[in-house]
Amino acid sequence: MRGRQLAALVRKDLRLELRTRETIVAMVLFAIVMLVILEFGLGTRDGDLTRFAGGLMWVTLAFTAVLGVGRSYVAEREQRVLDGLLVAPVPRVVLLGAKAIAILIYMAAVEVVVIPLVGIFFVKGPYWDSIGWIAITALLADVCIALAGTLFSGLALFTRARDLILPVLFLPALVPVVIAGAGATHAVAGGPHDMSEWRGYCLFLAAYAILFALVSVATYDAVFDD
């Protein structure tokens, strides 16, 4: 029953996204613009940004995540459908899971573009051999982003100035994800290949995901409990 509900909700979000193409396209474009701005902002047009590649990647992904997460309940809110979901016998944790999976898919779609671009734009030295390790890092970080993002977007949903509230709530919580994501990427990309460092950061991301999963499961009932 829960599996059927979860599948139906995820399918609904993907169908809406496929039909309107609002979120993913905007996220990808935003991420590319971010990378370009960061390049010029750092002002080293002839310099070597390999050292900063991990950081640039995760700063970009963090801000792109805020953009995507901000869209996560837009259809429900603008078309006023939320009551329909809430009056159905759906455990709130299933709503949480479905939104988190949708965010995860959006982030993965963005990373398919961003991770190779970072290699092309910024890294001088070995990169493509490590792409698998970077992908694992990204997937772990995506779980963190999806869980924290779903919780905070639920909180921001019915506040005034919600578009402003979400980044204020979400970005401080993302600092550890950026630190660990950048650290893990840095450990394996362009230069020294330090697997123990990579493992340390990835374990941290896993711990983050577990902790936020527990908090979300424990509190999500209350988010929609008017």
Binding site: A173, V175, I179, G183, L214
Partner: peptide
Amino acid sequence: IAGFASVPLSFYSVRV
């Protein structure tokens, strides 16, 4: 509750 979960994560991530 969520903020208090972020605190140890921030502490630990900075120290890692």
